Amino acid sequence: MTRLRRWYRRLDGWTRSLSRATYAVVTGLVAFVTYMLVGGLLGEFAVAGAFGAGFALTVVYYVMDPRER
């Protein structure tokens, strides 16, 4: 459990060190890749849907900046 907690804290520290734009792009890329992977596992590749989800999350995370304290 401590190894998992240590990994989480490293990842959390890395994401907090990113700029607002970089964080938004990383979030969008993660959404795009996840959408494509799940679609591939279900046998439906929806590139337009994946692009839309990734783009939408990138814009929302850039505008709203959820990491702001």
Rank of each mutant, 00 (worst) to 15 (best):
G52P: 05
V30P: 04
G52V: 00
Y62H: 15
F55P: 00
A50C: 05
D12I: 04
S19V: 12
G49N: 12
F55R: 05
R69A: 15
V30T: 08
F45M: 13
Y23I: 03
L37V: 08
A21P: 01
G13N: 06
G54T: 00
L4I: 04
A48K: 12
A24K: 02
R20K: 15
M64F: 14
L11K: 04
D12Q: 03
M64S: 15
R69K: 15
F51S: 14
E44V: 08
G39L: 03
T58H: 05
G49F: 01
F45W: 10
E68W: 10
E68C: 13
A24R: 02
V38S: 11
T27F: 03
G39K: 10
A48C: 06
R5K: 07
V60Y: 11
G49I: 05
E68S: 15
S19M: 08
L11W: 01
A53F: 11
W7H: 02
L11A: 12
F32I: 00
L41N: 04
A48R: 11
S17W: 01
V33M: 05
R5G: 03
W7L: 11
V33N: 06
R69Q: 15
G40N: 13
M36G: 08
V25E: 13
R69H: 15
G52E: 07
V30M: 04
M64E: 12
V26I: 01
R16P: 00
M36Q: 06
G49M: 08
L4N: 07
V63D: 09
L18R: 03
L4H: 05
R10T: 03
T27R: 01
Y23S: 10
M36C: 14
F32M: 06
R5M: 11
Y23E: 06
R67I: 05
R5Q: 14
V33C: 07
